[in-house]
Design a protein around this nucleic acid. Structure first.
Lengths: 152, 152
DNA sequence: TCTTTTTATATCGTGCACAATATAATCGCT
DNA sequence: AGCGATTATATTGTGCACGATATAAAAAGA
């Protein structure tokens, strides 16, 4: 049977592959993060802060490509869990600075083994993984650029 | 400055690239689907049914790697929008069969131009796109297999 | 100095995504 | 024939993800 172009299958969509792969990784992380009381997006935020503490909400948003309506509730939950502190910037009170607490710093050690677990699950060499990552990043930048240029 | 392995940046994570790229595509689709009254996951379900009408909820779940707690509310919204009908299977009443309505079939024509728009936004040739897709699919299957084998 | 514009974050509402649990139907075994 | 195990979907609760909107602070212009 011949598939016409209009009978395109969902499996043929690159965006579906990304969507499904992203969820598969989320499900892979869940048992690793659950003992730490973290979700995957919370883990991403902490990873950003472990690399550079004291970022503004907007800066975290830029690094993770997330809007404030996603970040503010997420950061409040991390604050409630005692892992970060949120304070208004003294010089510009529109901006909120996010700093790690001692527990937030300590969480880094507890989460240290996660990347190796995840890498091992992919079955990829580090070289191949980085190459695939770069291609996906390039694709994402093309897509984001297209969206920005598609003004009214 | 040398980055130690423990100072790993979130940008270095393949899973973050997938996560961010998936969301970027979601944002790319949104203005294309919004006029049709559809969300991206709803569009995925319809795509599956356009290719093969009358699937069971479980079969849709397998094709999209989604659990029934995600699908049931989503299908109910599509049913409420008049695009699909859900009926219990006569032979096995545990199973729910999902069929397209006339409006659901007609939606296919309305959505016909979307794949081309999305493809053009990626800036990729069809050949490169398919190759990248296959690599991501292989990765997802590795990850899903790892998760299945990591039993108690 | 005052007003308008811009910027940063917060809130609200909606739609997922999934684990845990519930309900109902089918199957297999005795 | 009855009971326990299994299967399929539904419900509940929680955490995002994002568009629309609101609030407050800073910047720019008159």
């Amino acid at each position: 049977m011949t598939e016409t172009v209009s009978a395109q299958r969902v499996e043929d969509f690159l965006c579906f592959s990304l969507y499904a792969a992203s969820h598969a990784f989320n499900r892979l992380y869940q048992p690793l993060l659950e003992p730490l009381g973290l979700t995957y997006p919370q883990y991403l935020v902490l990873t950003v802060l472990w690399a550079e503490d004291g970022l503004l909400v907007g800066q975290i948003g830029e690094k993770l490509a997330l809007v404030s309506s996603t970040l503010t509730p997420l950061l409040k939950r991390l604050e409630g869990a005692g892992l970060v502190a949120r304070t208004r910037d003294r010089q510009d009170e529109r901006q909120v600075r996010v700093t790690l607490t001692e527990a937030g710093h300590a969480m880094r050690d507890r989460a240290a083994g996660i990347p190796a677990c995840v890498l091992s699950a992919t079955g990829l060499s580090l070289e191949k993984l980085l190459r695939l990552k770069d291609e996906i990043d390039a694709l994402r930048h093309m897509v984001e650029q297209h969206k920005d240029n598609a003004g009214p």
